[in-house]
Design a protein around this nucleic acid. Structure first.
Lengths: 213, 213
DNA sequence: TCGCTTTCGCTACGAGTCGTAGCGTAATGG
DNA sequence: CCATTACGCTACGACTCGTAGCGAAAGCGA
């Protein structure tokens, strides 16, 4: 998870892998009980059964620790084949909503994003370990839909195709996050159905008329 | 801004209105320089030229103060008539993106949302003073588009119409926020054009086929 | 088996922030 | 002019931060 360099096996006592998992788990537990602002590294250390200094040796600070702890949650996301593009989208959006329902993801992720507005390195960490990592789902869904004939093969311009992927990701993730955290209403099946319909019709229409009406 | 009850004019010395504006302005200035996590009420008090206790008499804590300070930024939003629904949407989305470009809005808003996941009262404050307040733009745009004949009059079901407004707001605000803060790329004219096209085609298509394909 | 190296747990520390209390003073309204 | 409230100021205990120093533990290569 960390961008350490274990390329050259360094001499000396190796870092305990058990400590890392214990610390990350303790961080999530602390997020659930305390939220981000009241979470202290001393508390995390006590929960994990390690010394506070051990945490500081591995992570620069609270922000980075929380990002790594939350990032693991999103690796659960999958894109099972449900037969149609609409059903695939609905499925993954519901999974995403389910993760955002967990308190450790809610406060942790948003607080990290907030801090990243003043910390370029932290934003990079978020992008690498969460955003870009999950963009695979969009690519996978597109490929599958193209195989089904639900979407045209690919845009002639590769840059244009990449832009579309980014747009889809921002729309999907943004809408679910806003619905869940800002509006404070559940992204349940009914909402997801309506959202998916709008997104899908918009994409199909945009693919038909690539530029302007 | 605060939900005080100035209904019955209380006796005694009234609260200084100048102090309130100075505190809110100082809060925004501190957000720019320090971000949310390093912002202290002592610092805000010093900037505003007031005593720290004065702030504590008016706001419960840092979270509520920041929400009120940021909420004022979004009151600038307008919906000038640009002739078409697409142009109207692009215009307001660009304004929204411009506000989110300001550092005091970026870190302040996201941090407040993060904290609101563990504080129901704070979430209520955000909804009242920011979200619901700006939903007027969606309603205004819809009415105007209906007058132009770009959208059908209204859904037969009033609940369905309200759901659509909520959906639009979540999609628009969510996508712009995610694009700007999470993906870290600018919501420039090119992006806004593409986004608006998808949204508009999706809405028109959804209005045509109210349920399922 | 023996060093060398690094990590680990522990304790302690100064610095900084928190939110509150108490005080005397200022500004209203009756 | 008197009751009432807001204000600025100071001071306070409690807490968290991030770091330093220590002895012990755990690997690896010779």
């Amino acid at each position: 998870m960390q961008s350490r360099t274990p390329a050259t096996t360094r001499p000396g006592r190796p870092r305990s892998a058990a400590a890392a998992t214990a610390i990350l788990a303790a961080t999530r537990a602390a997020l659930v009980e305390l939220g981000w602002s009241k979470l202290t590294l001393g508390d995390v250390a006590a929960r994990a059964g390690v010394a506070k200094t051990t945490i500081y040796r591995r992570w620069p600070g609270k922000n980075e620790l929380v990002v790594d702890a939350v990032a693991e949650l999103f690796d659960e996301l999958e894109l099972p084949d449900r037969g149609s593009l609409a059903a695939d989208i609905e499925g993954v959006v519901l999974q995403f909503a389910a993760i955002l329902d967990r308190p450790e993801a809610r406060s942790g992720l948003m607080a990290a994003v907030a801090e990243s507005t003043r910390d370029e390195a932290l934003r990079e960490r978020i992008r690498d370990s969460i955003v870009e990592r999950q963009k695979r789902l969009v690519l996978q869904g597109r490929t599958r839909a193209q195989a089904r004939g639900e979407l045209p093969p690919e845009s002639s311009d590769p840059e244009d195709a990449a832009r579309t992927v980014d747009l889809i990701f921002d729309v999907v993730a943004g809408a679910v996050v806003h619905r869940t955290l800002v509006s404070g209403r559940p992204a349940d099946e009914e909402w997801v159905r309506g959202f998916t319909q709008v997104l899908l019709l918009g994409l199909r229409g945009a693919a038909a008329s690539p530029d302007g009406p």
